[in-house]
Design a protein around this nucleic acid. Sequence first.
RNA 1: GGCGGCGUGGCCGAGUGGCUUAGGCAAGGGCCUGCAAAGCCCUGUACCCGGGUUCGAUUCCCGGCGCCGCCUCCA
Length: 476
Amino acid sequence: MTIPPIHLHDTRRRAVVPFEPIREGRAGIYTCGPTVYGPQHLGNMRSQLMADLLRRVLEAAGYEVTHVINITDVGHLVSDADEGDDKVEAAAARTGETVAEITERWTEQWRSDRRRVGCLEPHLNPRATDHIAGQIEMVRTLEAKGHTYVIDDGVYFDTATFPRYADFAGLNLDDLEATGRVENVADKRHPADFALWKLTPPGVTRLQEWDSPWGRGFPGWHVECSVMADDALGHPIDIHTGGVDHIRVHHTNEIAQSECAFDLHPWVRIWMHHEFLDVGGEKVSKSKGHVLVVDSLVERGIDPLAFRYFFLQAHYRQQQAFTFELVEAAGTALRRLTQHAVAARDEVGGDVSGTGSARAEQLRGEFWAALADDLNAPRALAIASTVARDGELGAADRWSLLADFDRVLGFGLADAPATGSGEGAVVDERVAARLAERQEARAAKDFATADRIRDELAADGWEIVDTPDGPTVRPR
RNA sequence: GGCGGCGUGGCCGAGUGGCUUAGGCAAGGGCCUGCAAAGCCCUGUACCCGGGUUCGAUUCCCGGCGCCGCCUCCA
């Protein structure tokens, strides 16, 4: 099966364009990663899922992918543009932990959350603090080329030296100035200018600071991404992903500094931005004072993979309505899909060769065509649903297709435990004994006892499924 | 104020100028079952409002109403 040529939406050109790799057969992806001063909410996970989807589709299409996701552990300011404290430092000050403790803890939490929603490990996962020298070097380069100026607060990028500055996001720089809504560092020449290196004020000692040609301080947020991306992927870069919120400031600034430093345009071939999760009335990031995270789902008995299924149900460039009920519904759909897949899988002993029937290959083609068309996961998922319960396809074709599809869907269908078939369900002895007891009761027509046992097992989280081959249980 | 997007059947959510039930969840009917559950089969004729273009628009254009996001750290 050959996957059709891949087309992706490029924010810069505002259009879906063919993916044309810089190096034949290879694809480099840079994804803006987490700032590790606290938990990553489910909206952040959508960002990870979108990048993971992209990476899986490219790999399925045969590209050798290098997926880079950075860890921001310094430089991300807590408040207005170029003002306020570093987020990590602020968190450390709040909890009394060391910076290392904070960043380690939240980095691990993030990695765990990614895994739980089925994201593959990035090939590279660089940390900003491991790239300080490179960041200083980039600022020096920009300085040598006349794109910077130094004020008491730090070294700033002079956007006036980059005529294309407003193009990427369609900015109106005069308006930006006129609205006066941007809190400014006093001496900045233009509101859009941004910090490349923040200087530590005299008499102050920061938890994280480094010497530089301009004095002690720490790097600006934007420059880290340019440096880590370049270190990992060189330039230009095939694809850079992130949330739509980054278009205006973060990515615009990354482009400015990178294109000036590298004398290159475009620095990034395709910019992909996902839309936000819409949580309606509730605060997106808050739920009873807590951030909406992967564990918020687990606490409600929702499989984190249900969130992956939920994510795939909507297109990444569309805002997606979030409620727990919707994710639960996705979980139900995922469970059913898995049951069908597993039944087909076990019927053919895991053989993925299929029969190559016309209908099967037709569906296979439609599935990959959907994904090749700017990652249309909802359409692809619909085809997977159709395949799972298609009456015309035999088990061999159903499993052949679903196993193939799962390279991108990422539900782990090949390893999913058999349920409801009476085989493979792992239960402890006590549960098995109760099940046998119920069978005895049923045989004796003592249905009151049988139903009582069923209720008790249900209370313990086991759902009884009676089949022609006898009863079995599964976690509910 | 500037920029971007959205309004599809109970809910979510694809999609298209006229074949075509997108798909999921929920709901109703049926089969199965000691009763359930699970599973399977069947069912719903949707496209914000008003104009326009067209042989024909949910899909194109204009206007209106409503909603959301970004512009400030932010996925």
